[in-house]
């Protein structure tokens, strides 16, 4: 019982950490992307006082928004790679910082 509790808490911290980075971090980037696109689009995208025209469009915002979306897509691609790789008895390794596919030990 106490052994199991120790193992479980040890695993739980890792899951919590990974969950926060991927499960809250990617949505954060995604939300920033939406914010940037709205900034880029200007006008009616943001709530503003009625009767006046909205803020001016900022093209850099559009670019920034799509860059952020691309990062999120990469994160999702990593998730799918992980599912496929573990299905075929492989694992993702982060020992070189960037992910590589290795044999599961």
């Amino acid at each position: 019982m106490s052994d199991n509790l120790g193992f479980a808490l040890e695993g739980a911290w890792k899951v919590l950490f990974a969950g926060l980075v991927l499960g809250a971090g990617l949505p954060l980037l995604f939300a920033l992307g939406i914010r940037s696109l709205a900034w880029g689009a200007g006008g009616e995208a943001e709530v503003h006082e009625s009767g006046v025209t909205g803020p001016k469009p900022q093209p850099i915002g559009t670019v920034l928004g799509w860059v952020l979306f691309a990062i999120v897509l990469l994160g999702i691609a990593l998730g799918i790679t992980f599912i496929v790789a573990s299905g075929f008895g492989k694992a993702l390794s982060f020992e070189h910082i960037y992910p590589t596919i290795i044999d599961k030990h």
Partner: peptide, 8 residues
């Protein structure tokens, strides 16, 4: 995904 990666 994190859990199955860590065998949890």
């Amino acid at each position: 995904l994190a859990s199955s990666h860590l065998g949890f």
